[in-house]
Design a protein around this nucleic acid. Sequence first.
DNA 1: TCCAGATGTTCGCAATACGAACGAGAGTTC
DNA 2: GAACTCTCGTTCGTATTGCGAACATCTGGA
Lengths: 259, 259
Amino acid sequence: MAEEYVQSLARGLAVIRAFDAATPELTLSDVARKTELTRAAARRFLLTLVDLGYVRTDGRLFSLSPRVLELGYAYLSSLSLPEVALPHLERLVAEVHESASVSVLDDADVVYVARVPTTRIMRVTIAIGTRFPAHCTSMGRVLLAGLPPDELDAFLEGHPLERLTPRTVTSPVALRGELDRVRAQGWAMVDQELEEGLRSIAAPIRNRAGRAVAAVNLSSHASRTTLESARRDLLPPLLATAARIEADLHATSSREAMP
Amino acid sequence: MAEEYVQSLARGLAVIRAFDAATPELTLSDVARKTELTRAAARRFLLTLVDLGYVRTDGRLFSLSPRVLELGYAYLSSLSLPEVALPHLERLVAEVHESASVSVLDDADVVYVARVPTTRIMRVTIAIGTRFPAHCTSMGRVLLAGLPPDELDAFLEGHPLERLTPRTVTSPVALRGELDRVRAQGWAMVDQELEEGLRSIAAPIRNRAGRAVAAVNLSSHASRTTLESARRDLLPPLLATAARIEADLHATSSREAMP
DNA sequence: TCCAGATGTTCGCAATACGAACGAGAGTTC
DNA sequence: GAACTCTCGTTCGTATTGCGAACATCTGGA
């Protein structure tokens, strides 16, 4: 913990995060238990959030209000990438009829910042803000491949590679080999390492300095796309889309915060 | 301001909101100015947010980190509607080839909580969390039409109706007339009241008690859709989709926080 | 080089946020 | 019905957390 640390802000944010899919509505005491605060403290934070419009209550149960999206939206609106990328994703999807997404790297995860879905092929829904482990996703692979060597070393040392399916690459040596290949070919394909049946192919989006700062991908299901057809049919339009997004981002880069 | 109010939480959240499209990166002093805090206070909040991973800094400029999406994501993941609705939107878009969205009412705005875009037809990009004034949007119309009379009275008294285009309905009497029509026909069409050229058609999504708690819409451009063809070609699949979303929500309503 | 203005930082202390104790409600037992 | 126990939500005296006045540093202009 830093010296200059406002404990009340940290506690208040933990109260926001206490609401999730499993517990969308909570009593004051539930929140206190979940955040390990006293009931009096939880009450103060909840009442403050209600006053600010971020939380609603019927007098007993508390739940988040749509206004809390404003906080995440601040990030998206501060970043030109989603807005620039979305029309290109729309065009790509109209061409190949598979879901397309853009993500950035944050710690050990990729975080989705733009998406045009077609038909659902995963067990879980992907939305803006969804996070997956970088090591077993196609977009994560191109982003990791673009890290400077010291940052990649730090990543591998700091993050054990979790196994999600029998195919997940979990050894740092094997992953380095995969990333070498990604660097050589300029794109990544991941086959059922995140979820059984899920195939995806990704390309990097680079800034002016040539650093991969985001990734764009297409995802499909193993039942309708062979590895060969993905490379033949999906890769060319994907690479073209990445290039177009880059060109647009460079054209606007005098006013952007680029990841 | 309520008695039980944690000023530090409110201030910290204002710091998050200080970052936007116009100012994605800010110095400590910029943040202080923008939030009307002292530099010392702004510094403490920024350092706290950096420590929590929500803000990044190069030592001079601060910017939001993707992790801040987690705060908005808490709302989306706490609400079953987006997850239930998205597959239905995907199917609807595959059928009619126009962008489809779901939103909820929050104060005087509709807030987008799910979306499948096709081709962009508006000047601004719509993302999850985007807010538009309810009175001049098709989804806002069906949601306002579903308010109890006392709540609709309060809305009209508390919110002057802003004019966005020459066609925007800005008189409370005229809007009441529109809402009467919406109630009678069960859907709403809005023609270039939000933005020139934008046509959209919306249907309500109701909870078990019959209250319109969300809305689903299709949007198109005046250059490619007549009012007549929108009603003939888009309305039937839209209404069918609303019914399907409702059915699915009712099936899961034992575990949901429904708006 | 000097000065003024702007920026970032420190540390004594005031006021903000704290939680122990209280009040209220519900359920159980005698 | 009374008494007791447990859980929940709330209050208010005060401790400690967050405060900002003052200091330190940097930058640009004369």
